[in-house]
Design a binder for these strands. Sequence first.
DNA 1: GAGAATGTACTAACAGTGTTAGTATGTCAA
DNA 2: TTGACATACTAACACTGTTAGTACATTCTC
Lengths: 245, 245
Amino acid sequence: MLVCQESLFTEAPPATGGIIVPSKNSKEPRETLNRERVLRAAVSLADECGIDSVTMRELGRRLEVKAASLYNHIASRDDLLGGMVDLALSEIAVPTEGVFWKETMRRRAISAREVFARHRWAAGLIDSRDRTGPDSLAYVDRVLGVLIQAGFSPAAAANAFLVLDSYLYGFERQRPDVSIEDGFERSEAARKILAAIPHGGYQNAARVAMEYAEHPFDQEAAFEFGLGLILDGLERQLGADSTRR
Amino acid sequence: MLVCQESLFTEAPPATGGIIVPSKNSKEPRETLNRERVLRAAVSLADECGIDSVTMRELGRRLEVKAASLYNHIASRDDLLGGMVDLALSEIAVPTEGVFWKETMRRRAISAREVFARHRWAAGLIDSRDRTGPDSLAYVDRVLGVLIQAGFSPAAAANAFLVLDSYLYGFERQRPDVSIEDGFERSEAARKILAAIPHGGYQNAARVAMEYAEHPFDQEAAFEFGLGLILDGLERQLGADSTRR
DNA sequence: GAGAATGTACTAACAGTGTTAGTATGTCAA
DNA sequence: TTGACATACTAACACTGTTAGTACATTCTC
């Protein structure tokens, strides 16, 4: 909705001016800020303008507050980013018990991918941020529950969880920015590869490039292919473990 | 070798002083800088002190040069980071042809993991950075060659490559900082989980925590478990495709 | 109600960041 | 010797996160 380019005012328009913001008089004191409002504003700012534009001053500008005031609600910028990640991750659909575990985990992964599509900055912020908040822990607990109930040992469940999320986050980080319309063949990499063919270079990459020129790269299919690979492998391991027992 | 804490001098000691740096006289003009020296210095600085301490001024201090001078050799800080990633990735062992593809890919992954252990900042910098330099392209071409020669179609080879690297980078990003000595049971997450048990919370996470208390988490084993899962899946897909044909 | 305590937002400033313009200096080629 | 070029320098810019101190309004306590 809101445009991104630097605002016309480097500072917020003077509150007493009354020209731009006519409805604001002293009778209507502005609603007070809180942590959640700050986090939500930061998320939507990042969604619209990228994570780099989430600066204290810009965020303050959006909330019609000076940057320093934000520190009444967050401890630091790092705290802010952590809260944003938490907020984004909380949008990932919760696995429902009672469904076959494989389907549950697949849906969770696809839901996560949708979340990362909405919040393209999120995957890049997930690292060793501790994620020990009650919401995160509850979420982890529920996922582990699905796996344990399916027959995985606690350690195997944790392993499966780790492997799945590694793939999930890793795929997201590599997500190429090219849309299908743009197509690989118009990317710079393709240009360089194709330019090198006459000199005998990059023959294998060239074959891939030509393949993609005919059938454009389907990101979704590629993701689900790898996901299926891992889920099948986990299922096989589960079967092997349970028959051995 | 070199310590990290802020240097004793906020500025480099005056070059003309001759007290700290006695051997430097005008007869011995310092060796001139170049892009590679800058990149290597940045890598070792990041290795020793973390990526956050790779600032233009600190890097200049290490090279006994003012920050602005670095711009004679790199275009921007982003260019610097890109070059550092390139340098790190070039340390990943090149797959050798003639060996069974699965073993080749496994070795490549493990080599990459060693590289990421040496350069802990590297995995975090790999994103949609373009990687279209000649070295990167040659590397990609070689990996694709191994897969295509093994019987994968060009598209399937690219898919396999993407899936494997997603897992690789993703696992690295999630790599917990706890060493085995520290152990999971002493981590903050474990503390919170165990504290919640009496109230009936996080039961599944608790079972995992107790499991890890007995048998500490083996990161290497977990990584290779997932890697094996993916490689087995790829092999199965390869077999199915070739028999169908 | 009076006074104290609390919470919020403000101004001003600090030290640090990446980056650019303009200037000196030294090294090679013509 | 002269000119061109590359390099490193100083100085400055606009920006960053963050803190200290202050003003004001609300809420709690007596």
